[in-house]
């Protein structure tokens, strides 16, 4: 997994609640058997005016100029600001893959779908829950200041404006934080406990032999 320590980037506001993973990456792109190539189809139905299909040359498709990600002031944004319950719905990990491959490193929202939250952290996409008032403030600042940027510091567990005048602390499980800071491979960490897993399995099947 890619490490995450500190990131500073342009913020783009996506002002709608309950953005589901079908919206982040529509189903037709899930037919791929690869982990890459999802970036240009991130938010496909909102981003383009036509209906996207796998294999299209996305650079030739008509853009929806109204959609916030297509506005010139938000080009190259790497921090996505969202509303409550972002990433609800389907468990598709293609959603964080698409966001990462579209250039995002951080998503900030009041709340996230549980599966999306896990999937994101498992891929080094830092998802941060901030209180609704803080998120409201950020939406306001984003609209008010062209080029509004934020610094996200995982070690200090804080989000701050680049002038340090606004700082918000965030929570993350200590074990998650450590894995992200070090870019550790989760599977290797678990396999360090292979003996404990084996011992558990023996007990488990002895108690419930119908499972073995």
């Amino acid at each position: 997994m890619e490490k995450f320590t500190v990131h500073t980037g342009l913020v783009v506001p996506l002002d709608r609640a309950n953005v589901d993973t079908d919206a982040i990456i529509p189903k037709q792109f899930l037919k791929s058997i690869k982990r890459t190539g999802y970036g240009p189809n991130c938010f496909d139905e909102w981003r383009y005016l036509d209906v996207g299909q796998p294999g299209m040359d996305n650079s030739k498709r008509p853009l929806n100029r109204e959609f916030v990600l297509n506005q010139p002031r938000y080009r190259d944004a790497s921090v996505l600001l969202a509303r409550q319950n972002f990433g609800c719905g389907s468990s598709r990990e293609h959603a964080p893959w698409a966001l990462l491959q579209n250039g995002f490193r951080v998503v900030i929202a009041p709340s996230f779908g549980d599966i999306f939250y896990n999937n994101s952290l498992n891929n080094g996409l830092l998802v941060i829950r901030l209180p609704e008032v803080a998120v409201d403030q950020l939406f306001h600042d984003c609209a008010a200041f062209v080029g509004f940027r934020l610094t996200v510091d995982l070690d200090l567990q804080e989000v701050r404006t680049t002038d340090d005048r606004w700082i918000a602390k965030f929570d993350i499980d200590p074990s998650r934080r450590e894995r992200l800071l070090n870019g550790w491979d989760d599977i290797s960490l678990t396999l360090n406990h292979r003996d404990a897993i084996g011992a558990f399995e023996a007990r488990h099947f002895a108690a419930q032999p119908w499972l073995a």
């Binding site: 990990e93 599966i115 999937n119 599977i187 678990t190 396999l191 406990h193 292979r194 897993i197």
Partner: peptide, 21 residues
């Protein structure tokens, strides 16, 4: 019973376990 992402699918394949809160 709960849904998981593809990284977790690989994790379960490899270890028969998942880190869970």
């Amino acid at each position: 019973a709960f849904g998981i992402g593809t990284s977790e699918v690989e994790h379960v394949m490899a270890t028969q376990c998942l880190p869970q809160k």
